[in-house]
Amino acid sequence: MSDSLIKPRIERPPLSEVIEAKAPLFLVPVLMLIGLLAIGSGSTWLTLTAAGLAMGMMIFIMASGLTVIFGLMDVINFGHGAFISLGAFAGFTILGLLGGWIESPSIALNLGAVLLAVAFAMLVTGLAGYGFERLIVKAVYGQHLKQILVTMGGLVVTQQLIYVIWGPDEIVLARPTAFQGSFVVLGAAIEKYRVLAIAIGLALFVAMRLVLSRTRIGLLVRAGVQNGEMVEALGYPIQKLFLAVFMVGCALAGLGGVMWGLYQETITAHMGAEVMISVFIVVIIGGLGSIEGCFIGAMLVGLLTNYTGFLIPKLALVSTILLMGAVLMWRPQGLYPVVKAH
């Protein structure tokens, strides 16, 4: 008799709840469809969609670090943009040194130069992230107001340091030969670099999901997002986890910085602070702390920016703000609110 009592089953949630829960997944296709109807021309739409996805992927790369850091340690790093710029400058320094590789027609050399630049940028920003966490963030865990102010101060100082090291002028650099020009698909011109950006972004998203679901560190991060205290009570030093995640988040910003820089072919010390606007919008839309939400939010923002950029150019950025407003009216905490245990 007692056995039957011990074995209650899990109830299936009603269908409406399932749909409600999965609804954010439909947003991207729905937006694409609306875009197609509004634009009319199939090939223009295809070009814009590719551009939008590429932009979305790059924003996702930059935003993912920010959102995971928030989820795990309840810290929003307003200085995140500085790491984007720092990564771009570090990466461009390497690309500048490897001028021969970049101009050569060989894809292998091109790719090698980009990979080296990315690796160096991630190394630099990862290490800078270490310094930033220890010097600036560590003392203000749990104090939101001070955190915002102090990381904002960190942004100013880092930007100024970039000026000191690399000088006050913007740096212009052409993309490696292999990533210039476009493919023509179904009558639509799709820039090669955008395809690369989409590939890298997707690969990163898949890799992050795998790490988070298959590895012990990933499990710890997910557990820590929900209940950091319990992670400690199980015997894991969460401070070290914080530091590691912070460094990875900053390294991702650096990666995003190099990619964004190659996309624009120009970098400045405040480029990071500029893209941060879209990054913040994405993170808010997705729900603070959620990787899936961040991914969907980034795609939405990327696509919408490009569609409106074509239809009503002046409203491109404003349209993403309106999107954010609409999402918040539907879900006040963003698409995928992260449930905290305390």
Binding site: F70, I76, F78, H144, L145, I148, E274, M276, I277, F280, I281, V283, I284, L288, K314, L315, L317, V318, T320, I321, M324, G325, L328, P332, Q333
Partner: peptide, 24 residues
């Protein structure tokens, strides 16, 4: 829109809105 949620939300939101306003 944002004061109901969290201080951090408000900070991010105002930053985004103000920047968009500047661009507009």
């Amino acid at each position: 829109f944002s004061l109901r949620v969290k201080a951090i939300f408000f900070a991010m939101m105002t930053l985004a809105v103000a920047s968009a306003f500047l661009v507009l």
